[in-house]
Write a protein that binds this DNA or RNA. Structure first.
Lengths: 191, 191
DNA sequence: ACCTGAACACCGTTCAAGT
DNA sequence: ACCTGAACACCGTTCAAGT
């Protein structure tokens, strides 16, 4: 005897994202998600294999949203040097807006199962600016340098690792400007 | 009626570090730690307030060890430019050696309670090389740029975020060399 | 075909009782 | 003074039984 669905995968993932941001990853429990969508915990297993898969879907949604923000920011800044600065600030702004989601996405060794296509789209704008700045030969190296710095800076900032005082805003701008200069194509001396 | 101690805080932290590396953070349970030191779980609460404190102590031990490695590597490389490269490679080497401990230490938003003194010592060698390279005015900014890049690079590497092929070794060396150049003091144009 | 209560294994943590 | 079993609240997950 078929029954009308009382929830959906989209609703479940949305509930997971809300709980992540309000209660932290520890508060993202199957029971809390179930309560939020008006169902009992065992019912979630009809849409999701287990909690790990749900957490991965939440992270994937975050990656997609971050990628859209970066794309939107890149559009309308034709100059590559200026665009790198805009991308860096947008990346950091998103992390401040959704710190828990950002932490989840960039936690090292997290065993997340993310769709490669979503990841590709999320990093496309950074790769594009790297191609323009440093030329095709070192584009991948340059993109990885940029992504590593931005990710590392915001991760350390969010975890309170910058404890020696000073102006964090200024440190970020310093890094962004120095990187934009450093990644620009240089004459090739053979390495 | 006093009883001879059957374990110690040092033994407990050591057991925690072993479990972290072999079983992951999820395998670092109070019961597993207790079993490893030959005691029952409730006894651990005589030495440690709760699991969160034990995890913080494990992370702190990691920070201390990493700092020692960096100090040892810095000693004996007087040239600042070369020393930055050595420090970066040592940092990455340690992360590869103890990936789970590294991940724990640098997980953003982890709520770890770390001794500020241990953290200061762990970052001292990076700060010193930044002072030498970029002068006192921008030393803190430069150190943060360097630490952010190194941390971000290794974090992304460990979480498998570099999925576009290419030579990761080369990307690391590229970043290290470009940063060493970029952080060197430049004439001050007023910003 | 979806939803549920009951059950299981496993956590962290507390505490009275042992020695 | 340390250690323990028992107990509690809370997880994730499975499954037979309901509709």
């Amino acid at each position: 005897m078929p029954t009308p669905d009382r929830t959906s995968l989209g609703e479940i993932v949305a509930a997971g994202r809300e709980l992540l941001e309000t209660e932290g990853l520890g508060g993202l429990t199957m029971q809390a998600v179930a309560a939020r969508v008006g169902v009992r915990a065992p019912s979630l297993y009809k849409r999701v294999r287990n909690r790990a898969e749900l957490v991965s879907l939440v992270a994937e949604a975050t990656a997609g949203e971050l990628g859209q923000r970066l794309d939107a920011a890149a559009t309308g800044t034709p100059d590559a040097h200026a665009r790198l600065l805009v991308l860096a600030r947008t990346f950091r702004g998103y992390a401040h807006e959704r710190p828990a989601a950002f932490s989840l996405l960039f936690t090292p060794g997290s065993e997340l199962a993310l769709d490669p296509d979503v990841l590709r789209r999320a990093s496309a704008s950074m790769l594009a600016v790297a191609v323009e700045l440093s030329g095709p030969d070192h584009a991948l190296d340059a993109a990885r340098t940029l992504a590593a710095w931005a990710n590392g800076f915001v991760s350390m900032e969010l975890s309170g690792a910058f404890r020696l005082g000073g102006d964090i805003e200024r440190a970020f701008e310093f890094g962004a400007h120095r990187l934009a200069d450093a990644l620009a194509a240089k004459p090739d001396f053979g390495n």
